[in-house]
Each structure stands twice: as structure tokens, then as C-alpha cells.
Design a protein around this nucleic acid. Structure first.
Lengths: 138, 138
DNA sequence: AGCAACCCTCTAGCTGGCTAGAATGTTTTG
DNA sequence: CAAAACATTCTAGCCAGCTAGAGGGTTGCT
């Protein structure tokens, strides 16, 4: 199958496929005599795996490492599992941070509505924002 | 005050200050005869305002627009207020998305531990990941 | 006079995940 | 047999927010 068909089946663009190849996420496929990439059916599987793994929050680099391990004959799911665990922890952290931000931001928004605009005179300061606690880094 | 001192007081690097100037977030300061940037005390306020606003989740572009309005003599906090409201909505959306992702990811992680590794043989697929629902885009 | 610590401008690169376009070659369809 | 639809490689750019380095000049102290 040619790159266009693979792109169609995998739900990505041909450019994306070539890009994936360039970062060694997809192996170089066979070529036709005229130089066109010629994929087998397994390429669709692999592409979909990438898409699903990406949707699970793994970066392309991480996906590459999973695929590499699998290609090397690694039978265990431990690597994938630990990646997932790590992402779960990150996700929790992120959610906590966002919630904290939300609290502060909601506070700011309320304050901005209660303030007297006429008292807002300093061009380098904003009462709404300056008066608030700084948020944790996102 | 010279750039190094301002950087120190503002908690950023001198490179960052020059960068902010390059994107018109900071105005061009006066210069000494030898060409050094020479800041007044208000620069510290402005830099801190930028930092605080950034911590509130505003992008540098948005901060620039707030500062621009203030410089133009805008007395009302309406702009800032609406920016904050918009960010609040975005934040809520983001949190909801992350929570959804978290649920799916936790499910995946559990599944990966319950699976029999020996049955994981297809180098292009991973039972853990392929079996799951795709997550919403992050 | 020498040296460190500061400052200047300018260009280029980083992160991640692509996307766009130029210039060219091939395959398929009518 | 011509046109369209596909394919190729290559270079360059996007987003945001910086950071690094080259190759200089200035300031302040001894």
C-alpha cells in the first residue's frame, strides 16, 4: 500500500507519516521500483498504535521507546505500565495545580468586578492582578 | 538602574528582559552614554506585574494588550476582567479534560498490571493500550 | 595596566508535533 | 496521450517563551 492509503487508514496526513519516519517512529518501508514507499498491513496497526498511545498521553519519544522494546523482543508490559504510572502521577499533579490556579483566578475575577475603576490609575500596576497571590507555576 | 539589577529585582534573567523588550512587552529604556540600558524604579513594578499576570495564566501577548490599554489611559478594569473570565472558562475546560484523561489512564494502568505478559506478542500492538478507548485531545 | 564583572548586538537554537511549499517524477483514468 | 492525482526530496516555518553563544565594548577596583 502507498503512503496515501496508509495515511487514510491511519487517520493522519502523508506528511505526518514521513515525519514519523524521519524521527524513527516508523521504520523505513520497502520501496517500489520508482521509489514510492510501499507499506504492508502491519503499518496500519503500528500507526494506530501510535495514535492510541499518543491519545493516552505518551509523547512520541516515549512511544518510540515502547516500540523499540517490543521490537527487541521484550515480552513484558512493565515498561508500558511504568510509563502509564508516571503519566498518571503527572496528570494528578497537573490537575492539582490547575485547581489551585482556578481558585486564585476566580478570586481575581470577582475582585475585578468589585473594584472601583476610577482608582485604577497607575499605568504600571493593576490592582486586580497585583493585589493577588502569585499562582504556582504551571 | 542597569539591566542586571533589574533582572535581580524582577526575578528574571537579563536575556529575558531583552527578549521582553524585543516583543514590546517592556518599553525601550533610556541609555547611558555608553549605551547601557538605564531603568527607573517603575520598571521593577512593570516586570513584577508581568510576572504576576503570567502566573495568573495570561500569555505574554495578553499581558501586552493589558499594558497597552493602561498606557493608552484606559481607566476601567473591564479588559483585564474579561481576560480573566475567559481564562477561568478555559481552565475549567482543561481541568475537565484532564480528569477524563485521568480516568482512562488509571484504567489502562490497572489493566496493564492484570494482563498476562506472555500473551503480549504482536510487536505492533500493545494489549494495554490498543484495547482502551482513545482519550480526548489534551 | 590588568582583570573581572558587567554590558552590548546579533544570530541561532531549543521544545513537540507537525505543516507548507518548491520543484520534480510517476501512476492512473478518460 | 494528456491531465489529474498521486508520489518524491528538500528546505523552511509555525506556536511560545525563552536560552546560548559569538564577538565585542565598558566599568570599577587594585
Amino acid at each position: 500500500m502507498k503512503i496515501g492509503e496508509l495515511a487514510e487508514l491511519g487517520g493522519v496526513s502523508t506528511k505526518t507519516i514521513r515525519y514519523y519516519e524521519s524521527i524513527d517512529l516508523l521504520r523505513e518501508p520497502a520501496r517500489t521500483t520508482s521509489g514510492y514507499r510501499n507499506y504492508g498491513d502491519d503499518a496500519v496497526e503500528r500507526l494506530r498504535f501510535i495514535r492510541d498511545a499518543q491519545a493516552s498521553g505518551l509523547t512520541l519519544a516515549e512511544i518510540a521507546s515502547v516500540l523499540e522494546l517490543k521490537e527487541a523482543g521484550e515480552r513484558s508490559c512493565a515498561h508500558t505500565s511504568s510509563l502509564l504510572d508516571r503519566h498518571l502521577a503527572q496528570l494528578d499533579e497537573q490537575i492539582a495545580l490547575l485547581k489551585k490556579s482556578r481558585t486564585v483566578l476566580a478570586d481575581l475575577a470577582m475582585r475585578s468586578k468589585a473594584l472601583d475603576p476610577a482608582s485604577c490609575t497607575d499605568p504600571n500596576r493593576c490592582q486586580v492582578i497585583s493585589a493577588a497571590e502569585p499562582l504556582p507555576n504551571l
